[in-house]
Measured scan of single mutants.
Amino acid sequence: NSLAEAKVLANRELDKYGVSDYYKNLINNAKTVEGVKALIDEILA
Rank of each mutant, 00 (worst) to 15 (best):
Leu9Gln: 10
Val19Glu: 04
Val8Trp: 14
Val33Ile: 15
Asn1Phe: 15
Asn1Tyr: 15
Glu13Gly: 03
Leu39Val: 09
Leu44Lys: 08
Lys16Trp: 04
Ala45Thr: 10
Asn1Ala: 14
Thr32Cys: 03
Lys24Met: 06
Glu42Val: 12
Ala10Asn: 01
Ala38Trp: 14
Ile27Gln: 00
Asp21Ile: 11
Tyr17Asn: 05
Gly35Ser: 11
Ile43Lys: 01
Asn28Glu: 11
Leu14Arg: 01
Ala45Trp: 14
Thr32Val: 01
Ala45His: 09
Asn29Met: 12
Gly35Tyr: 11
Glu42Ala: 13
Asp41Gln: 14
Asn28Arg: 07
Asn11Thr: 11
Ala38Pro: 00
Lys31Trp: 09
Ile40Val: 14
Thr32Lys: 02
Asn1Lys: 08
Arg12Met: 15
Lys31Tyr: 07
Leu44Met: 11
Asn29Ser: 12
Ser2Thr: 12
Ala6Glu: 04
Asn25Lys: 12
Ala38Phe: 12
Val33Met: 08
Leu14Ser: 05
Ala4Met: 09
Ala4Ile: 08
Val19His: 07
Ala45Tyr: 14
Lys16Cys: 04
Leu44Asp: 02
Ser20Arg: 07
Asn25Ser: 10
Thr32His: 03
Lys16Phe: 07
Tyr17Ile: 11
Lys31Met: 12
Thr32Pro: 00
Ala10His: 01
Ala4Val: 08
Thr32Asp: 06
Val19Asp: 04
Leu3Thr: 02
Lys37Ile: 10
Glu5Asp: 10
Tyr17Phe: 09
Asn28Gly: 05
Asp15Gln: 10
Asp15Ala: 14
Tyr22Val: 08
Glu42Arg: 15
Lys31His: 08
Tyr17Pro: 01
Glu34Lys: 05
Leu14Phe: 04
Ala30Gly: 03
Tyr17Val: 08
Glu42Trp: 15
Gly18Asn: 10
Arg12Trp: 12
Glu42Ser: 13
Val19Gln: 06
Gly35Asp: 15
Ile27His: 00
Asn28Ala: 11
Leu3Lys: 00
Ala30Gln: 08
Lys7Met: 05
Leu9His: 07
Glu42Tyr: 15
Ile43Cys: 03
Glu34Gly: 06
Gly35Glu: 15
Val33His: 05
Asn1Val: 14
Val36Met: 03
Asn25Phe: 13
Ala30Leu: 05
Gly35Asn: 11
Val36Glu: 00
Glu13Ala: 11
Ser2Ala: 13
Leu26Trp: 08
Ala38Thr: 09
Tyr22Leu: 09
Val36Tyr: 01
Lys16Gln: 07
Tyr22Ile: 07
Ser20Trp: 10
Lys24Arg: 15
Glu42Lys: 14
Glu13Phe: 15
Lys31Glu: 12
Asp15Asn: 06
Glu5Gln: 12
Gly35Met: 15
Asn25Ile: 10
Asp41Ser: 11
Glu34Arg: 07
Gly18Ala: 06
Glu5Thr: 09
Glu5Arg: 13
Glu42Met: 15
Tyr23His: 05
Asp15Trp: 08
Asn29Gln: 13
Gly35Ile: 11
Asn1Gly: 09
Asp21Glu: 14
Ile40Leu: 15
Val33Trp: 08
Leu39Ala: 04
Ile27Trp: 01
Arg12Glu: 10
Asn11Ser: 10
Val33Glu: 04
Glu13Thr: 14
Ile43Met: 05
Gly35Cys: 09
Tyr17Thr: 04
Gly18Pro: 05
Lys37Trp: 15
Val19Thr: 06
Val8Tyr: 14
Ala4Thr: 10
Ala45Met: 12
Tyr17Met: 13
Arg12Asn: 09
Tyr23Pro: 00
Lys24Asn: 03
Asp15Tyr: 10
Ala30Met: 11
Glu42Asp: 08
Val19Tyr: 15
Asn11Gly: 07
Gly18Ile: 07
Thr32Gln: 02
Lys37Arg: 13
Glu13Leu: 15
Glu42Gln: 12
Asn29Lys: 10
Ala38Met: 12
Val8Ala: 14
Gly18Thr: 06
Val36Gly: 00
Ala30Asp: 01
Gly35Lys: 13
Leu3Ala: 01
Ala4Gly: 06
Asp15His: 08
Ala30Lys: 03
Ser20Asp: 08
Asn11Ile: 15
Glu34Trp: 09
Ile27Tyr: 01
Asn29Glu: 14
Asn11Trp: 15
Tyr22Cys: 11
Ile40Met: 15
Lys37Tyr: 15
Lys7Ile: 10
Ile40His: 04
Leu26Val: 04
Leu3Ser: 01
Glu34Pro: 04
Ile40Cys: 04
Val19Lys: 06
Tyr23Cys: 05
Lys37Leu: 13
Tyr23Glu: 03
Lys37Ala: 08
Asn29Arg: 09
Ala10Trp: 04
Leu9Val: 08
Glu13Trp: 14
Val33Cys: 03
Leu3Tyr: 01
Ser2Ile: 09
Ile27Val: 08
Lys37Met: 14
Leu9Glu: 08
Lys31Asp: 11
Asp21Ser: 14
Val8Ser: 12
Asn1Ser: 11
Glu5Ser: 06
Ala30Val: 04
Asn25Trp: 14
Gly18Val: 06
Leu44Gly: 03
Gly18Ser: 07
Asn25His: 12
Tyr23Ala: 04
Ser20Pro: 11
Leu26Asn: 02
Leu14Glu: 00
Tyr23Ile: 03
Ile43Ser: 02
Asn1Met: 14
Ala45Lys: 14
Gly18Leu: 06
Ala38Ser: 09
Ser2Leu: 13
Leu14Ala: 15
Leu26Ser: 03
Asn29Ile: 07
Lys37Phe: 15
Ala45Leu: 13
Thr32Gly: 02
Ala6His: 06
Lys24Trp: 06
Leu3Val: 04
Tyr22Gln: 07
Ala6Asp: 02
Ala38Lys: 12
Leu26Ile: 08
Asn1Cys: 10
Glu34Ser: 07
Glu13Asn: 05
Leu44Asn: 04
Asn1Gln: 14
Lys37His: 10
Glu5Ile: 14
Asn11Pro: 01
Thr32Met: 01
Asn28Gln: 10
Gly35Pro: 00
Asp21Trp: 15
Lys31Arg: 09
Lys37Gln: 10
Ser20Gln: 07
Asp15Val: 09
Ala4Tyr: 11
Thr32Arg: 02
Asp41Asn: 13
Ala38Val: 08
Val36Ile: 11
Tyr22Lys: 09
Asp15Gly: 08
Leu26Asp: 02
Val19Phe: 15
Ala45Ser: 10
Asn29Leu: 11
Ala10Tyr: 03
Asp15Met: 13
Lys7His: 02
Ile43His: 02
Ser2His: 09
Val36Gln: 00
Leu9Ala: 12
Leu26Glu: 04
Leu26Gly: 02
Ser2Phe: 09
Glu13Cys: 15
Ala30Tyr: 02
Asn28Phe: 11
Leu26Ala: 07
Ala38Leu: 11
Lys16Gly: 05
Ala6Trp: 15
Leu9Asp: 07
Leu26Lys: 09
Lys16Asp: 04
Ile27Ser: 00
Glu5Gly: 06
Ala45Arg: 14
Glu5Pro: 02
Arg12Gly: 05
Ala38Tyr: 10
Lys7Tyr: 02
Leu9Ser: 08
Ala6Pro: 00
Ala6Phe: 09
Asn25Val: 08
Ala45Asp: 06
Val19Ala: 09
Glu5Trp: 14
Val36Trp: 01
Leu14Met: 08
Ser2Cys: 04
Asn1Leu: 15
Ser20Met: 08
Lys31Gln: 14
Gly35Thr: 13
Leu39Tyr: 04
Glu42His: 14
Val36His: 00
Val19Trp: 09
Lys37Asn: 08
Gly18Gln: 07
Lys31Pro: 07
Val36Ala: 01
Leu9Ile: 13
Asn11Cys: 09
Leu9Trp: 15
Asn28Met: 12
Ser2Gly: 11
Ala4Asp: 12
Lys7Trp: 02
Ala30Glu: 07
Tyr17Lys: 05
Val33Gly: 02
Ala10Ser: 01
Ile43Asn: 00
Ala10Ile: 03
Gly18Lys: 09
Tyr23Trp: 14
Gly18Met: 08
Leu14His: 01
Leu9Asn: 12
Ser2Val: 10
Arg12Tyr: 11
Val36Asp: 00
Tyr23Gln: 04
Ala6Lys: 03
Ala4Ser: 11
Ala10Gln: 01
Ala45Asn: 12
Glu34Val: 04
Val8Thr: 10
Asn29Phe: 08
Ile43Pro: 00
Leu14Cys: 04
Tyr17Trp: 14
Leu39Glu: 00
Asn29Asp: 11
Ala30Pro: 00
Ile43Ala: 09
Tyr17Asp: 02
Ala38Asp: 07
Ala4Trp: 15
Leu14Asp: 00
Leu44Arg: 13
Val33Gln: 04
Asp41Gly: 08
Leu9Pro: 00
Asn11Glu: 07
Asp41Val: 14
Lys24Ile: 06
Ala4Lys: 10
Lys7Phe: 02
Ala30Ile: 05
Lys24Gln: 05
Tyr22Met: 08
Leu3Asp: 01
Asp15Ile: 09
Lys24Phe: 05
Asn25Tyr: 13
Asn25Pro: 03
Ser2Trp: 11
Glu34Thr: 06
Leu9Tyr: 07
Gly35Trp: 08
Asp21Phe: 11
Asn29Trp: 07
Asn29Ala: 11
Ala10Glu: 00
Leu14Val: 05
Ile27Gly: 00
Ile43Val: 07
Leu39Pro: 00
Asn1Thr: 13
Glu5Phe: 12
Asn29His: 09
Asp41His: 09
Tyr22Asn: 05
Glu13Lys: 11
Leu39Phe: 04
Val8Asn: 11
Leu26Tyr: 05
Leu14Ile: 08
Tyr22Phe: 10
Leu3Gln: 00
Ala4His: 12
Val36Cys: 01
Asp41Ile: 15
Ala10Gly: 04
Asp41Glu: 13
Lys31Ser: 13
Glu5His: 11
Asn25Ala: 14
Glu13Asp: 04
Glu34His: 06
Ala45Ile: 08
Ala30Thr: 05
Asn25Gln: 13
Tyr22Pro: 03
Leu14Pro: 00
Lys37Glu: 06
Ala4Arg: 10
Thr32Ser: 09
Leu44Ser: 04
Arg12Ser: 08
Asp21Pro: 13
Lys24Gly: 03
Lys16Val: 05
Val33Ser: 03
Ser2Tyr: 09
Leu9Phe: 08
Leu3Pro: 01
Ala6Val: 09
Ala38Arg: 12
